[in-house]
Write a protein that binds this DNA or RNA. Structure first.
Lengths: 221, 221
DNA sequence: TAGATTGTTAATCGATTAACAATC
DNA sequence: TAGATTGTTAATCGATTAACAATC
């Protein structure tokens, strides 16, 4: 009953549960036990039960979990029963790729506008949405009640643009720029730092090669 | 001296250290203490010292850390002193965006080839690299000693393609498809699940709105 | 009712933070 | 030498796993 804060570790696992449950639902599976789901997803059954219990009991003793019900409930927890309107800032390759990704729409994320500072890109279209000049950013966000701004611009411009977004009253920023944004509490930022991800991959490649050669300790020369 | 395994929690923080140290270096800062770095990065000084000590002492008592040396050492740990050749599979919007992203090159990741199953895309160019048909995948990877395959294809085709890659002897897969890949131990997989990231953002928006309205407990109707 | 499986408490494990002796 | 700051050990905190009573 208490307003216990759910840890980000748990939140981070919810989309994966949601994905597996969606697949099970599509396959016509009606119910599943934590043990079976555990085998499928390769996490412990204990963790599954703990995770779900953060939000109250979704299951039934002796039965397991109803797949469709659980799927819907996790969807609601993730806020996927609501519509989130977003704009993309930056009409470069990445911005256009994100704009063309229609799957977001199925989860309630509605592509509403696109902006770029380059006059040559202004006026071009992405999925029927015309690219607008940066000057129109504030007006458009306010008039259209935009929830999320997707930052697909270089890091140098990301910081000042984020400040403008904050002033405009944006709720959330999905940040693809390789820089940390400092925004006031209450504005949500989710970073996708592609090069960080690639560096982790690089580390794991190197580490494995070292292990392979039984070089526990590597002298630097 | 022991081959103590470094936790992925630590590895996950290295790219961010690397980024901040690179910026300090560019600004001409010569040395920094864990305390100053702590203030800058908003993590505890204790964590910084612990993290660096996983790899042996990079600092000096009474002095702090030499920025350039630390930057170089973290780069080496991350394997950025080596070259990693990669191919992109999937010449759609995302694949092309990744191919056009020249910053990867600066970190030693070399774009070498691109593949697509769609004959209409085969032959088109991305940064001077021609898109090849999927039939040439195995031959090309082996002849060119490719380390990393970037999967920018729909999830349905991602699983069989990953199997082909594994057979071909690829070292690592950077997976943008929304599916979990099962590969043998020793092949590194790093997932970038964009919709998972967006769902986390969605959760945090909803959560903040609930807190705002002091609705700790929300009845479902 | 008996069997299955959750919900939940307790035990363990790992990661983070605090503290301080070593040392530059 | 005195001051600063690391390297490292110990304490704390949080997350995961194990266990089992509750209950469908």
């Amino acid at each position: 009953m208490d307003e216990k804060e759910i840890s980000q570790a748990v939140i981070g696992r919810l989309p994966r549960y949601f994905r597996y449950l969606g697949e099970l639902k599509d396959e016509g599976v009606e119910r599943i036990s934590s043990q079976d789901l555990s085998a499928l997803m390769k996490v412990t059954a204990s963790q599954i039960r703990q995770d779900f219990n953060n939000f109250g009991g979704f299951g039934q003793q002796g039965y397991g979990y109803n797949v469709e019900y659980l799927y819907d409930e996790i969807g609601k927890i993730l806020g996927l029963d609501r519509r989130h309107k977003f704009v993309i800032i930056g009409a470069g390759n990445l911005g256009r790729a994100l704009g063309n990704y229609t799957n977001f729409e199925r989860r309630g994320f509605i592509f509403r506008g696109m902006f770029d500072s380059n006059p040559e890109l202004v006026g071009s279209q992405v999925r029927g949405i015309g690219v607008m000049p940066m000057e129109e950013l504030e007006r458009f966000i306010q008039e259209n009640d935009i929830d999320i701004a997707v930052l697909a611009i270089p890091k140098a411009s990301a910081v000042p643009v984020a400040e403008r977004l904050v002033k405009t009253g944006i709720r959330a920023i999905w940040n693809f720029a390789h820089v940390d944004l400092n925004v006031p509490e209450g504005i949500q930022v989710e970073n996708v730092h592609l090069s960080d991800s690639l560096m982790k991959l690089s580390y794991n490649i190197s580490r494995y090669q070292m292990e392979d050669r039984h070089l526990g300790e590597q002298k630097r020369d």
